[in-house]
Design a protein around this nucleic acid. Structure first.
Lengths: 243, 243
DNA sequence: CGGCAAATTGACACATCTCAAAGCCTGTGG
DNA sequence: CCACAGGCTTTGAGATGTGTCAATTTGCCG
């Protein structure tokens, strides 16, 4: 098997707009520095000033904001094809960290390359821009979840989101996807305690047709889960429109 | 007094990077449709497909996500100079609404203008992009607040954020700023109930050197408030760096 | 003065956290 | 192959935090 490719990134864009051959070519020939991170390793560190931005190729990553007492809040999960750290290109100084959830392979792209594209490729630039704007939409959906959904609904919504995003790029089949995450990490996504997450997951297992054994999520009835959690995928911008 | 100008938008950019005369000129000559919204009016509606994006000129606006039962979560507050709805330019379909908090004057810019800039002005495009990426950073800060800060810290953090942002564009002086907002609206920002917000505010008033009479926030000791709420303004990218 | 909208209070139910102890599973060394 | 260590998951119990409901009070405006 050849090394993980940028195909999921290209899929990410092509689900939402058309790419020209030239654009596909530019993306495919980006000089990449590949790296595999182990569970919990920081691939981008808060307060640093990165000179490259990373794309998830395989596995999962998450954005994390740390508090002084060591607590943290995860603010998004990223799947293969996500240009996770594009934010750094504009922010210059990171406001948060990006950590690996389970083993995670990423590709780093130098900012000079992004700058070149931003100078010469308006359409591709807009697609990059779109990717960060979708990240913001995901943050808003998470804010709604944490602020106004019950813990049960929140987890259900999270699973619907991840399944949908993974399915879009061909990384989920048969209502199943890999989610090698600790309950404590889910607690950091939900802003709850480990113990409460544990109890909530037990309720979900018994009531709402989802199962998660710590490694794999299996959704037994997606529609029911989506209805229960008020999941509406439109915030993921899964429509092909000229951008 | 002439009508509210785009000066705060230009200030927003110039705090973070240098603008050329040509760029300032392009911004100043954008064709604008001005409109004043009353408290609680929706200036951008979720699920619609706007053909223009709006900039706050005066007053405050907020992003809102609505749930089926009528509850809502506010995900950000916007101040004069914020190009609030730039997201619509890339998203095409809105995932959320933008509502006026108190009386709010905005300027709408047609997407054709933004498209023209994105085709011809790479640097200005990056600044627009930066503005949306800062919005995402604000969402992350709010996620951390709602998930990992106490209600008291959360409100304190919110006041620090707003004071800092307003001060930056010259809309706050003497540790005071206008915040003509209802406790119920603050509850929608914090993801809490009205009653709990009321009690929390009373605690803040007595303990933490802040006052808010429903119209104006007065911060008696900013440093103490910032320390208490772990406010670190770096997520607002207030540094002048070439972008 | 009368009428509202918003702020405040009180009482009580329910949700969530913390602490601490068990139970489970897996990899390793003997 | 078994015992044990370490990391997760699960449970229990009691302390706090938050929500809900309903009544009161306050402030502003016609």
């Amino acid at each position: 098997m050849e090394p993980s490719s940028l195909k999921p990134l290209i899929d990410f864009f092509e689900v939402r707009d058309n790419l020209s051959d030239a654009e596909r070519q530019i993306l495919s020939s980006l000089p990449l520095r590949r790296h595999v991170f182990q569970r919990n390793e920081e691939m981008v560190r808060a307060h640093t000033q990165p000179r490259e931005s990373c794309i998830v190729l395989k596995g999962l990553a998450a954005r994390a904001v740390y508090m002084q007492n060591g607590a943290r809040q995860l603010t998004a999960v990223h799947v293969p094809g996500d240009f996770v750290d594009l934010h750094a290109f504009l922010l210059k100084v990171m406001d948060h960290s990006v950590v690996a959830l389970g083993e995670c392979e990423v590709a780093f792209v130098p900012h000079e390359q992004l700058m070149r594209i931003s100078q010469e490729q308006p359409h591709l630039t807009r697609l990059f821009w779109m990717s960060t704007v979708i990240d913001a939409a995901i943050h808003r959906a998470w804010l709604a979840s944490i602020g106004r959904r019950s813990p049960e609904q929140h987890i259900a919504h999270l699973f619907c989101e991840l399944y949908t995003r993974l399915e879009t790029i061909g990384f989920a089949r048969g209502m199943t996807f890999g989610f090698p995450v600790t309950q404590s990490e889910v607690a950091d996504m939900l802003g709850l305690s480990l113990v409460h997450v544990n109890r909530t997951i037990q309720q979900l297992r018994s009531k709402y047709f989802v199962n998660w054994d710590g490694t794999t999520v299996h959704i037994k009835d997606f529609d029911r889960l989506a209805e229960f959690s008020e999941f509406d995928p439109s915030y993921l911008s899964l429509i092909k429109i000229p951008r």
